[in-house]
């Protein structure tokens, strides 16, 4: 009883917002109780991953964002000037430099590696789509027994480490590697082709590594297609190709978008594959970032590259979400 009156008297002065009430009416020991009592299970379930993202994604992101606006000090430790500083007279000094960003857009090396990264990612995505669509379609149309075997085969490479699989390609692609030796033995070529350390090798590596990410969302879309729609199209006079173009393809559009983004997004920031298989004279942006960070120790520039890369990827992610919502709505029918 005593407790209740005390609470009332504290809550009395003015109507306070719920957060305010939450913080002041209950002390920290009672927060857990408050949450358990007033929050539904749904809220709690959502709160856990959100808290995770807040601590391990949003906070580091804000730190990186802060560093990208700092001034580089080569001998400092950490190697940048503080952005926020309390001056002696009790004022907060905020020093934001946009120099790192300006540099990104003026330096030809940066600009060209941006363009190269996007180009590689786009072409790899297209290649994955061209290869993955027929595969996903075939799997979706296979009898259930074969379907599981095929799906298993698609996922099987994941059982080996990604790094090992990329290394294996070096052995296949190098000048005295498996492919060259085989072609020489067959007599198709007279002298070994140089395939390793070219853009070709990067495409091979990316397409090989990310193909499952194209196939799986496409498969899960195509597998849901109602066969009677194709029967209806056929009944209305559309041949197999027409039916595909007018019915299957447009209905699989959300799958195409999902698969393409799952390939495009990691491909833009791909670091391992171009480092191991790619050209040395043309860097991709992730390699540039790591060089900036580890070799030059220029944290502000590295941070600016990271932020710019994130911004470049936010647009595709938002497109992705848009189509995902659309598909969800369509499925809710």
């Amino acid at each position: 009883m005593k407790l209740a009156t005390a609470r009332m008297s504290r809550a009395a002065p003015g109507r306070l917002g719920p957060v305010w009430t939450f913080l002041f009416r209950y002390g920290p020991p009672r927060w857990t109780e408050y949450v358990l009592r007033n929050w539904s299970g749904q809220r709690l379930v959502i709160a856990v991953p959100y808290l995770w993202l807040l601590v391990f994604f949003l906070v580091p992101f804000l730190i990186v964002l802060k560093i990208s606006f700092a001034e580089f000090s080569p001998l400092g430790r950490p190697p940048y000037e503080p952005v926020f500083q309390w001056l002696e007279e009790g004022a907060l000094q905020i020093k934001l430099l946009i120099g790192s960003y300006v540099y990104l857009f003026n330096e030809p090396l940066y600009v060209s590696s941006w363009i190269y990264s996007v180009k590689v990612a786009l072409i790899s995505t297209l290649l994955c789509l061209c290869l993955g669509y027929p595969m996903a379609y075939a799997i979706a149309r296979a009898t259930p027994t074969y379907r599981n075997v095929f799906l298993m085969l698609v996922i099987l490479p994941f059982w080996t480490s990604f790094l090992l699989r990329v290394y294996a390609w070096i052995g296949l692609l190098k000048t005295d590697g498996v492919i060259n030796n085989f072609l020489l033995w067959l007599g198709i070529i007279d002298e070994p082709m140089s395939m390793l350390y070219t853009s070709f090798a990067v495409y091979i590596g990316i397409v090989y590594s990310y193909l499952p990410f194209m196939i799986l969302p496409l498969y899960s879309n195509l597998e849901k297609h109602d066969n009677t729609l194709l029967e209806a199209a056929s009944d209305l006079g559309a041949g197999p190709i027409k039916s595909f173009m007018r019915i299957t393809l447009p209905l699989s559009f959300p799958g195409i978008v999902a698969g393409s983004l799952l390939v495009f997004i990691p491909a833009v920031g791909e670091y391992v594959i171009p480092s191991l298989l790619g050209r040395t004279d043309q860097l991709m942006v992730a390699k540039l970032l790591s060089d900036e960070f580890f070799l030059n120790r220029d944290w502000p520039k590295a941070s600016a590259v990271a932020i710019a890369m994130l911004m470049l990827l936010v647009v595709p992610i938002m497109i992705f979400q848009h189509f995902q919502n659309k598909e969800l709505q369509a499925n809710r029918r």
Partner: peptide
């Protein structure tokens, strides 16, 4: 068709 099979 029984399910109408309209193109969604």
């Amino acid at each position: 068709f029984q399910s109408y099979a309209l193109f969604p």
